[in-house]
């Protein structure tokens, strides 16, 4: 494709840098996304994890240019580049083309994203008309093909049914079919399996994994479920209080977490190892986006807090000998050196 030949090899598919999305409300300004930088390479899957209110979904909506304004505002200095092209401040027509042809998004609750009064098939056909200009019988044929590709059972029959006649898993398959209709190079999936049962979740994640490989499509998967991200994603970024606090390969981050928040989150997971014991608990509560703590935003809850943490906010610091980063003063060269000294 001409688009691929145009792009340079070192250019990421999606590159977000210093993204700040604030919401101006009557009760104050919520700094929902506050300096997020991330890269998604072609064909790669990046997981974005964190607890409610940490800014995962607002990050995704900012990429899709779907943050309502007002109350939302993407601050100057924020940059979202898709294949090298800046999207912050781009014309609405360009953004519509991006959403229609390059990036698709699926949401947690497929029932609220499907129109209840239209048949499933006609909704997929509509997407094909808008995004690929297909008409009539051709559009219908492609729609059935898409429904078959997402392994909807009896696609010809389902084509004529209404959303309420389908199960939750089938509805999510229809949403994925619609998202695929524009042949996106990036699929943003926001908690796509959270409303589904565990066996259905396994089916949908298996499907997304196959589609990603077959179509060479990159996936940005947003989830609160660390297990889902560990199984699905190559890399993972952990968010806390509007920022990314740790980033690296899923394997490394989940098995050797560096940031105290990631460590706390993993330790609080129940399961076989925790049977008969008390779970480790992160003290305190998650801060509000109207009032992020000064310095390191995790310092009031951190077991390793130092004087410096309350005063000065750490950047995402590279972890020596790896491709990883963590937003923690423990990773600063001085602290790391002091740690080596005490050990010696």
């Amino acid at each position: 494709m001409d688009i691929v030949t145009r792009t340079r090899a070192d250019e990421a598919l999606l590159e977000v840098s210093e993204l700040r999305t604030y919401l101006h409300t009557r009760t104050g300004t919520a700094r929902a996304v506050d300096g997020v930088s991330l890269r998604v390479e072609r064909g790669e899957s990046l997981g974005l994890v964190g607890e409610s209110g940490c800014g995962k979904t607002m990050t995704a909506l900012s990429v899709m240019a779907l943050v309502p304004s007002p109350p939302g505002e993407i601050l100057p200095g924020s940059s979202i580049r898709f294949e090298g092209e800046e999207l912050v401040g781009a014309a609405e027509a360009r953004l519509r083309r991006m959403r229609g042809n390059e990036v698709s998004m699926i949401f947690q609750e497929p029932m609220t994203s499907l129109n209840p009064v239209h048949r499933v098939g006609s909704q997929v056909v509509e997407a094909l008309q808008l995004h690929r200009g297909l008409r009539g019988r051709e559009a219908a044929a492609v729609a059935v093909e898409l429904l078959a590709e997402v392994r909807l059972p009896d696609p010809e029959v389902r084509f004529g049914e209404y959303p309420h006649q389908l199960s939750g898993g089938m509805r999510q398959r229809v949403m994925i079919a619609m998202a695929l209709s524009c042949e996106p190079r990036l699929l943003i999936a926001d908690e796509p399996t959270t409303a589904l049962d565990v066996t259905t979740q396994a089916q949908i994640l298996g499907l997304l994994s196959d589609l990603r490989q077959r179509r060479g499509m990159a996936v940005l998967l947003i989830s609160h479920d660390l297990g889902v991200v560990a199984e699905f994603c190559d890399r993972v970024a952990v968010m806390y209080a509007g920022q990314i606090v740790e980033e690296g390969s899923a394997q490394e981050v989940f098995h050797h977490p560096r940031h105290p928040y990631t460590q706390g989150l993993l330790a609080s997971l129940p399961g076989r190892r925790s049977r008969g014991t008390r779970l480790a608990v992160i003290p305190g509560v998650a801060p509000s986006p109207n009032l992020w703590p000064h310095g390191c935003r995790f310092h009031p809850r951190c077991a390793f807090v130092m004087d410096r943490c309350a005063e000065q906010a750490p950047d995402l610091l590279p972890i020596a000998g790896s491709e990883r980063t963590a937003r923690c003063w423990l990773e600063s060269p001085e602290t790391a050196a002091a740690r080596e000294d005490t050990r010696a």
């Binding site: 066996t199 979740q201 396994a202 479920d225 297990g227 989940f254």
Partner: peptide
């Protein structure tokens, strides 16, 4: 079907898919 942190590293693991 339960996703887990360790499964990818379990050798020869195959999911029973319903």
């Amino acid at each position: 079907a339960v996703p887990s942190l360790d499964r990818k590293s379990e050798p020869g693991y195959e999911r029973t898919m319903l």
